[in-house]
Design a protein around this nucleic acid. Structure first.
Length: 112
DNA sequence: GAATCTACGCGTCACGGGAC
DNA sequence: GTCCCGTGACGCGTAGATTC
C-alpha cells in the first residue's frame, strides 16, 4: 500500500551504471521555513527580514517542487529501463536454455 | 450506486553530500 | 560554515477497479 515501500531496500546497481535508491527512517519534524541567516552586511527592519525569509522560502519550495518532479520522472525512466532489460534477459535466457537442450540431444549417446 | 481498495502523482519536509 | 541540489519519506487527493 505504501508507495515508498515499493522501492524498499536498494535497487541494486547490478549493471554499474544505475543510480541507487535507499530508504531512510523518518525523523522528527522541524519547520522547513526556519530562517538560516540574514543578508550579510545590511541593516533590515524585522519586517524586511521576514519578507526576505518568506521570499527565500517560496523560492526554495518552488525549486524543490520542480526538482521533485524531475527526480520522479528520472526514477520512472530508470525503472522502465530496468524492466526492459529484464525482458531482454528473459528472452536471452530462454534461448540459451533451448540451445542447451538441443546440444544435449546432439551430444548424448544413443541408448538402444 | 455506495463503499472500499489500489495505484499514482503531487507538495512538502528532512537529510546528506558536493561546491564555494 | 553556508548554500544548493537530489532524493527518500510522508501525507493527501484523485481516478479507476473491485466488492457488496
Amino acid at each position: 500500500m505504501n508507495r515508498t515501500q515499493e522501492l524498499s531496500g536498494q535497487l541494486s546497481a547490478a549493471t554499474g551504471d544505475m543510480p541507487t535508491y535507499q530508504i531512510r527512517a523518518p525523523t522528527a519534524a522541524l519547520p522547513q521555513g526556519v530562517v538560516m541567516a540574514a543578508s550579510p552586511g545590511s541593516l533590515h527592519s524585522s519586517q524586511q527580514l521576514a519578507e526576505e525569509a518568506t521570499r527565500k522560502r517560496e523560492l526554495r519550495l518552488m525549486k524543490n517542487r520542480e526538482a521533485a518532479k524531475e527526480c520522479r520522472r528520472r526514477k520512472k525512466e530508470y525503472v522502465k529501463c530496468l524492466e526492459s532489460r529484464v525482458a531482454v534477459l528473459e528472452v536471452q535466457n530462454k534461448k540459451l536454455i533451448e540451445e542447451l537442450e538441443t546440444l544435449k540431444d546432439i551430444c548424448s549417446p544413443k541408448t538402444d
